[in-house]
Nucleic acid binder design. Sequence first.
DNA 1: AATGAAATTGAAATTCGTTGTCAATAAGAA
DNA 2: TTCTTATTGACAACGAATTTCAATTTCATT
Lengths: 146, 146
Amino acid sequence: MKKSLLQQFEDHLRSQNLRLTDQRKLIVNSFARKKGHVSAEDLYRHIHKTTPSIGAATVYRTLKLLADAGLASGKNFGDGYVRFECCLQRSAHHDHLICTRCGKIVEFSNSTIEKLQETVARDHGFLITDHSLDIYGVCQDCSVKQ
Amino acid sequence: MKKSLLQQFEDHLRSQNLRLTDQRKLIVNSFARKKGHVSAEDLYRHIHKTTPSIGAATVYRTLKLLADAGLASGKNFGDGYVRFECCLQRSAHHDHLICTRCGKIVEFSNSTIEKLQETVARDHGFLITDHSLDIYGVCQDCSVKQ
DNA sequence: AATGAAATTGAAATTCGTTGTCAATAAGAA
DNA sequence: TTCTTATTGACAACGAATTTCAATTTCATT
Ligand SMILES: [Mn+2]
Ligand SMILES: [Mn+2]
Ligand SMILES: [Zn+2]
Ligand SMILES: [Zn+2]
């Protein structure tokens, strides 16, 4: 059985001599339940409803910690704020389709595109460390609706 | 012979009943000379050296106007600010390789990748309106240096 | 359990790129 | 030249994110 996000986070905290607090537990569990593409502000507002004692700064800080631990990654889809998604080992690299009407984000991966990117980089003398492919468009639901 | 960026900008201004000012002339020409991937702040600082009377707001506004005219486009490479590049008809769509060491930005285009994106979108019921592919890595100069 | 050093917290202040406000100025049609 | 209206520069305001700081909490050590 796989370790949960919280369990892996606890491991990280221990290994770095950081402390496990109630706030961190709650934030990480809320984040895990949301299943990705969540901004710090989104998560804060959600948490605030049931636990208003938790401050926004702590949510920002905890998401940053998760990212430092390699357990989440932040991505800017161009709408002004960073969305986080957890990146546990099982959920491999993927790219995104974004609906410009309703904001829906669909994940995909295409190994041919990935390989071609390697080729492009090599042709230009670059050693790839990362990449980001975002396809913007109108999803089926939205194109049916109008 | 092709019309210059300024000439096309003038056409746009006339067609929209907007006014051609000395500031706009200077900003657009500076921008054209810089050949893309320039932030408003970059351009403002550059212009400020020789023409300190031009305000930053005017540089921001003029770049926005160029974008509205379809003569420039802004892109966020994830480092906090928007970089503009001119998009005259001749300079077709392209994607970017970004060196994470020195910040160099190299343009490329790969029609096979473009076609595959269409396929991916269609498979997910999306109608593509736009896309953005950024490959991050280390350029040749930087990997030689260390 | 009690201690205490060090990490963490929430609230508020601060940062930074960008946009809005506004009175003064300039463009350009008449 | 006149007159309407767009444009300007300085500065305030914005919003996401980060920093500051005094109060609180964690947790290794007694
Ligand atoms: Mn995703
Ligand atoms: Mn480019
Ligand atoms: Zn949609
Ligand atoms: Zn480089």
